[in-house]
């Protein structure tokens, strides 16, 4: 079995604009976010997807449905959700990223998750839905980055903010074969443009 995952971060949201912490909480896509997803739909139209899956956060579900455009089946899975920041949700971004990056010790002190815990359930979910063919995934910046860090030394060593390394509506291709994930292409935001 050979699964080609297209891993996409949701389109830009109101809380992205307002610089508020948005992990297990959610806010609507902005007009810009909807336009980004529409361009992605057009660029990916020729690829035959067996399935599209997103987290259960509406920003991801909406991004997925715009891209899928009823062309292939979709489902919503809790395992694809963003890192939970616990009671910090909705607070100014600076509180969760004091030095512009995730707290390595995570957010369990606030009732949330560690990046590692989130990465494990994300990866487990990918393994569970893997089928022969192409699968489109819509998920979130921090959890996608944490997953890609297990596959790429460059990303592991980067100190950049998750939202910069994994931009809104970027596409990352990851191959899953013989129980092993391989990073094929780095996060690429070019397809969110016309």
């Amino acid at each position: 079995m050979r699964t080609q995952f297209y891993i996409i971060r949701h389109g830009r949201t109101l809380f992205n604009d307002k610089k508020l912490i948005q992990g297990s909480s959610d806010s609507p896509l902005t007009k810009e976010g909807v336009i980004q997803a529409g361009h992605l739909r057009d660029h990916l139209r020729t690829i035959p997807f067996k399935l599209g899956a997103s987290s259960t956060s509406e920003r991801a579900m909406d991004t997925l449905e715009i891209i899928a455009d009823h062309r292939f089946p979709t489902e919503y899975l809790k395992g694809l959700k963003e890192v939970s920041f616990g009671t910090l949700e909705g607070d100014p971004l600076i509180k969760a990223f004091p030095e512009g990056k995730l707290l390595r010790e995570g957010y369990e002190a606030y009732g949330g998750e560690t990046p590692k815990t989130a990465e494990r359930r994300f990866e487990k979910t990918l393994r569970q839905i893997a089928v022969d063919g192409n699968i489109l995934i819509v998920s979130h910046g921090a959890v996608i980055l944490e997953f890609l860090r297990t596959l790429s030394t460059e990303l592991r060593e980067s100190e950049e903010f998750p939202g910069v390394l994994v931009p809104n509506c970027s596409v990352t291709k990851v191959l899953y074969e013989q129980n092993t994930f391989t990073l094929e292409t780095m996060p690429d935001a070019s397809m969110r443009e016309a």
Partner: peptide, 16 residues
């Protein structure tokens, strides 16, 4: 929800 407790406007935004 969390935002009910934090007294944040929660219409189309959401919290657990």
């Amino acid at each position: 929800t969390l935002f009910n407790e934090k007294h944040l406007f929660q219409g189309w935004c959401d919290s657990p």
